[in-house]
Design a protein around this nucleic acid. Structure first.
Lengths: 203, 203
DNA sequence: ACATCAATTCGCCAGTTGTGGAGTTTCGTT
DNA sequence: AACGAAACTCCACAACTGGCGAATTGATGT
């Protein structure tokens, strides 16, 4: 299925000079950013190293020079999204009052961070089977502090995951167009009811 | 990234005879089933026609003979999962009492159908941008009967989607191990509260 | 019996993919 | 000033990809 090729962000068709560039080039970071974007858009299999290199404005071999292989590049690119759990711990360990809103806010804020958000999209789009962000989120919420209701906490995680999917991946207008605080307010009650069994204290 | 090749479900290494087989071969259906499975496991880009053919026990060219192209095969393979909306209409148009449990039950039952479920997995794994099952589910629930609260209905859809993701795609043990009815009972209240604004009528 | 059509495989092609080797230019250190 | 290491590109390759034409075999209608 012949693609027309990716017009590079930096590549303008003219041959780049060979050899090291003067000063700080930032090529490594450019590659990581391009990889995150491309993996997020097309998934692991659909993203080609040539497309990533073109987007970063470098030669494909430079990717290998820095990262070794496509799999290693993927791992490096999505590293930012690999510890969802730790970012939610604060929100989860706070007082039960308003915990639904706090967790929803923290989770959505995570997705809104450009680096983390693209990494999460890349991970989900690539369908990473084990250790993926979905499992991590769900398990993190479920087993956060040895609470007696891990299952219902996992269900809270599924709701958050579904909201994130609709807002950031499917980009469904109804959900994606909402203001951050608006969305938090809307889903907070449901999260709250899962996290604390008796449905007290509004979001 | 050189794979070792897919050991065919039917292919045993021996050369298959050329020419038409006697009797009903069922090759077309075998191809569709193999395509659904493979697309579900690896996504559109990751699934190769050769892998699908091997899984179905046929020559890759037979796929082209029947379906024309990889894209057309994909479309045919996921057709079963393309009208999520219609299958939920009954559950949504019933009485408000117990609508949460009814919708949750109908939705999960959809995923449990082998044909539909694999089609949905394939669609989500492939990241179909528009018209995908995620959008369809969400929009179907949101706009079902011109109700005054489409947004909150969409949020119910996000929860269901997240549950399905955890149970059928990520296959998170905590959610995947649950009995169907158990799971319905657990999430029904949340769905119910989204679908009817005043949180009346249990499960 | 004969002609027609569908099912099926084989071999091939042009393009793409990830990877690797070899060379060139600059940086950092001594 | 010399020199090793790092950044960077070009070229090539072997494998794989989707797609296609052609040949072979069986089923079906007349």
């Amino acid at each position: 299925m012949g693609g027309t090729g990716e017009a590079g962000r930096r590549g303008d068709g003219a041959r780049r000079p060979v050899g090291r560039r003067p000063g700080e080039s930032g090529s490594r970071d450019a590659i990581l950013a391009a990889a995150r974007d491309t993996f997020a858009e097309r998934g692991f299999a659909g993203a080609t190293m040539r497309a990533i290199a073109a987007r970063a404005g470098v030669d494909p071999s430079l990717i290998r020079h820095f990262f070794g292989s496509k799999a290693a590049l993927f791992a490096a690119a999505v590293a930012a999204g690999s510890d969802v759990a730790s970012h939610l711990r604060d929100a989860l360990t706070g007082p039960r009052d308003g915990i639904g809103a706090r967790v929803a806010d923290a989770y959505l804020r995570l997705w809104e961070d450009p680096e983390v958000g693209e990494a999460l999209r890349a991970l989900i789009r690539s369908g990473v089977a084990l250790g993926g962000p979905a499992e991590q989120l769900l398990e993190a919420i479920g087993a956060s502090d040895g609470a007696p209701l891990p299952l219902e906490r996992v269900l809270a995680g599924t709701h958050l995951l579904g909201v994130a999917y609709a807002r950031f991946i499917a980009q469904l207008p109804a959900v994606a167009a909402l203001d951050h605080d608006e969305l938090v307010e809307l889903i907070a009650p449901a999260i709250q009811r899962y996290l604390v069994p008796d449905g007290a204290s509004r979001g």
